[in-house]
Simulated assay, not measured.
Amino acid sequence: MFLLFAYLPQSQAASCPDWQSLASRNIEQWLAEPGVGRSRAEQLRAFFAHEEVLAVVGERRRLAIEGF
Rank of each mutant, 00 (worst) to 15 (best):
P17H: 06
Y7V: 04
R38H: 01
V57C: 08
L63Q: 12
R62F: 01
G37M: 07
R62D: 01
F48D: 13
P9E: 11
L44S: 08
F2A: 13
A46H: 03
I27L: 05
D18C: 04
A32Y: 14
I27R: 05
Q10P: 01
V36S: 05
A6I: 13
S39I: 14
L63F: 03
N26E: 06
Q12C: 02
E42W: 04
I27M: 02
E66F: 08
E66R: 07
H50P: 05
F48T: 12
A13H: 11
Q43F: 05
L54H: 05
S21E: 11
V56N: 10
F68R: 00
Q43I: 03
L44I: 09
E51I: 04
Q10W: 04
R61K: 12
E51F: 02
R38E: 02
L44V: 06
E52D: 14
F2D: 14
H50L: 09
R25F: 12
S15P: 00
R60P: 00
A32L: 15
R60S: 02
G67I: 02
R45E: 15
E52A: 11
V57N: 03
V57P: 00
V36G: 02
Q29W: 06
I65P: 01
A55I: 01
E33F: 12
Q20W: 05
E42K: 14
S21M: 07
Q10D: 09
G67W: 00
M1P: 01
A64V: 10
A55L: 08
R38F: 02
A41D: 07
L44E: 02
W19Q: 04
N26Y: 04
F47E: 14
A23T: 07
R45A: 15
W30A: 06
A46Y: 06
V53Q: 05
A14T: 15
L22K: 10
L63T: 01
R60L: 13
Q20V: 14
A46Q: 03
S39F: 08
S11Y: 06
L54C: 11
A46G: 05
R40M: 01
G58Y: 07
F68T: 00
W19R: 09
D18Y: 02
A14N: 10
G37W: 03
L22G: 07
E59N: 00
G67Q: 04
C16M: 10
A41K: 11
V53M: 07
R62V: 00
G58K: 12
F68Q: 00
V53H: 02
E33C: 13
A46E: 06
R45T: 15
Q29N: 11
R38A: 04
A6E: 14
V56T: 08
S24R: 14
A6T: 15
N26K: 08
Q29L: 10
Q12T: 06
F2P: 09
Q20L: 15
N26V: 03
Q43E: 10
L8F: 12
S21W: 06
